[in-house]
Design a protein around this nucleic acid. Structure first.
Lengths: 232, 232
DNA sequence: GAGTGGTCTAGACCACAGG
DNA sequence: CTGTGGTCTAGACCACTCC
């Protein structure tokens, strides 16, 4: 139990984050000016300024001198690897995304249940091929925890990617990943329309919501059409 | 025509970074107090405080109330962002690391100079094969900015890896990376003793010290013996 | 011109570490 | 106790955007 009150700048930071996470202030939208927050909290402008500056450094806000302070566009999943929603990534390149759902059903695969930390099944299982301008770019083999996403099987993943669906419903709190270079098996190679001998960049990832593993996913990408990139 | 002067807090940040990267202030060591820097720069304490606070957030410094401000101990983390020193990684597995230096010389490769942001050469160039229990696990092709590491060519990289050497001398502040799955060329394949047709996991990375690109490196790993892993 | 953020000052009080 | 960092105030001037 905290004996002292949090510093004012920290309270303001949390207030801003709460307003964003509760949907009052939406990504891309303008938030109150420094002077308005000064009046609202009864503090000096420097204090508000520090709170907003730190949230800008944390990429929660963006600020434009002369214009105002805005909620930063939302980031999907791991900021670490910048593995964004594949559909958004494609859209940012000005290209058209399409998805083909190969599988969407319950599964009792014991390895999948173990990865999700489930004592008993079933888990939900989906296999989707994502394409950019009609060219396959990602084979997604995903297992989902029904406890976290009970309506997963009822979604139409040609309209919204599983990644987007899950980020929309639950805040990802932790992730674990591994990255491999791999020769694809014949099934994946055929769906990605790859030449024989071309390697895959494979990403395996588990994400947590609270103490539950939300999803465990393997993503295969043709080496010739895909790489991962990011900054620290 | 000189551009606008940098803000005072930014000048102080760069000053601190320069003193660290030039070895005047060493990891773990005490640096001057806020008041001493206030006198030295002739600014208000808030200005020095902001500079040091931001460097603390960037993990360049650590501060202890009542004690002082210290240069942060350098850390070797296991995320893709800060790939660990390969030697430490191998040692953690209880294995023996060895390195073979293939190349260590100045280079005027125009692509390398461009990657380092250098108008004129030479840059320093090294090629090293790292092995775990005698088995090659990483081919490292590195270009280094002589402005940041003037003594690079005089080091013995069979004793200390380039990564460890650089982290020891300068605080890495920012990194950019790309990860590829790739078929190795014959030269790399031979040095890594890989089967024909086996893919490589290739990591390309640039790191910054202050506003200078410190190093640009390509790391090839045999897919069968290596993967990247991490948490968020 | 009015409103915004970016920076800076010269004080202040506090919590904490170490002699 | 002194010196350290942590926070905060109530002003100020500036650069920028938008109307």
């Amino acid at each position: 139990m905290p004996l002292k009150a949090l510093p004012a700048y920290e309270q303001i930071k949390r207030y801003v984050i709460r307003r964003i996470s509760e949907g009052d202030w939406k990504p891309g939208g303008l938030i109150p000016s420094e002077m308005e927050l000064v009046k609202e909290f009864g503090v000096a402008r420097m204090t508000v300024s520090r709170a907003l500056r730190e949230l800008t450094a944390e990429r929660v806000l963006t600020r434009v001198q002369g214009s105002g302070t805005f909620v930063a566009p939302q980031r999907y999943e791991s900021t670490v690897l910048e593995i964004r929603n594949i559909a958004d990534e494609i859209a940012d390149r000005g290209h058209r995304h399409s998805a083909s759902v190969l599988t969407l059903e319950p599964s009792d695969d014991p390895l999948a249940l173990e990865a999700l930390g489930l004592a008993s099944g079933p888990a939900f299982h989906s296999c989707i091929v994502h394409s950019e301008e009609g060219e396959p770019i990602q084979y997604e083999d995903r297992y989902v925890n029904p406890k976290v996403f009970p309506d997963y099987l009822q979604q139409d993943f040609t309209v919204e990617t599983p990644n987007h669906y899950m980020v929309r419903l639950a805040p990802i709190q932790r992730a674990e990943f591994r990255i491999y270079a791999q020769k694809p098996d014949a099934y994946v190679r055929r769906h990605l329309m790859m030449d024989i001998g071309e390697p895959c960049l494979q990403l395996w990832r588990r994400t947590w919501v609270g103490d539950d593993v939300a999803t465990s996913v393997r993503l295969w990408h043709p080496a010739s059409r895909f790489h991962l990139a990011g900054n620290v």
